[in-house]
């Protein structure tokens, strides 16, 4: 085939399939990148959960992983730490969802147009911008029974200040100030309360945007029909806030199951593992001082992934419905 003819067929093939090929050229960089760092590792982790591996390679560069079948999972089944973590994950999930109504409540409170409202709205949103590490540190100090805010308020309310002979100030308390983060019973609740702070701010901003776009004529029509207060909120306003509610629930569920930073900062899973969640337990197991346990860690990660997958499937299904509706 002469060169010119070859070129002719090639260009015509190109031009004929232009609309089929172009999207791939635009997609390929993102796809490759995303595949290497996200898609493939998911499957590698799942595979690894059937192996026992300390992360080392032999001299020839081969992995020293040993196939153990379902052993990691049967070990999980009898691991009390796993069950505590799972229980805490459920606790996080339910209590964290309080962020949605609380966010709505603050949004309703702030949905006014008095002077300086913009300032108030952004200041209420402020906690969300701060890193969870800093929020964890702030609350760790806030809860501190000796120097923190909780301790100070307690001393102010329940303690008597006395000065001893040496001139030092001591406190006599009817009961000692609570050390929330050192109590196996309350520590998890303390961390969740701290986590709610930025999450409520996030839900609030979603609802404020939603409220901004509520149809005024429907509200007026509702008012003419005598609806007000709770009835108006429930029957007229909330249905229009559905998209905001959906996103608030999505980000809150994801946030609850991803909780890691605060636990790492505030208690490191303690006291006695009582504040552990799957995400932190996995990290602790996979990279521990006693050597890496990649296989067991991957099994925990796989369980967490499976739980998340239930929610992800539901979100995707909802999105799919919307996409079909849009066409």
């Amino acid at each position: 085939m002469p060169a010119s003819e070859f070129q002719a067929t090639q260009t015509s093939w190109m031009s004929r399939n232009k609309l089929a090929i172009t999207p791939w050229i635009f997609l390929i960089p993102a796809l490759i990148f995303f595949a290497i760092y996200v898609v493939i590792p998911v499957f590698q982790s799942i595979t690894l959960s059937f192996y026992q591996w300390n992360g080392l390679y032999d001299v020839n560069g081969n992995s020293t992983a040993v196939w153990v079948g379902l052993e990691n999972y049967t070990k999980l089944w009898t691991d009390p730490k796993f069950w505590i973590s799972l229980k805490n994950n459920v606790l996080w999930l339910f209590l964290f969802l309080l962020a949605v109504p609380l966010g709505l409540f603050i949004a309703l409170f702030l949905n006014q147009t008095v002077m300086g409202m913009r300032f108030y709205k952004s200041m209420f949103f402020f906690p969300f911008v701060i890193s969870q590490v800093v929020v964890g540190l702030i609350f760790g100090w806030f809860y501190n029974p000796d120097f923190g805010v909780v301790g100070s308020i307690w001393k102010f309310m329940f303690c008597e200040e006395t000065t001893n002979i040496l001139g030092n100030v001591t406190f006599k308390c009817s009961s000692p100030p609570p050390d929330i983060l050192s109590s196996a019973k309350f520590a998890t609740y303390g961390i969740i309360a701290a986590g709610l702070w930025p999450q409520v701010a996030y839900c609030m901003i979603l609802y404020l945007t939603g409220l901004n776009n509520v149809a005024a004529d429907q509200i007026e029509a509702g008012r003419l029909d005598g609806a007000k207060g709770w009835k108006m909120l429930w029957y007229v306003v909330l249905p229009q806030l559905k998209p905001a509610t959906f996103i608030a629930v999505v980000v809150t569920v994801i946030g609850a199951l991803r909780s890691f930073d605060m636990i790492a900062i505030m208690t490191q899973g303690g006291p006695y593992g009582s504040t552990n969640v799957l995400s932190y337990y996995m990290f602790e197991t996979a990279i521990s001082e006693y050597g890496e346990r990649y296989g067991y860690g991957s099994a925990i990660a796989t369980v967490l992934f499976a739980i998340m997958l239930v929610f992800i499937s539901y979100f995707l299904w909802r999105m799919y419905q919307d996409e079909r509706g849009a066409r």
Partner: peptide
């Protein structure tokens, strides 16, 4: 187009821990 889009969306929601060991090893 839609399955690929959903792949990106789903990837954005997964727990970090499922990526941790392979990404660290890599």
């Amino acid at each position: 187009a839609l399955p690929l889009f959903f792949l990106f969306v789903a990837g954005n929601f997964i727990p970090f821990q499922i990526l941790m060991v392979p990404v660290r090893d890599m």
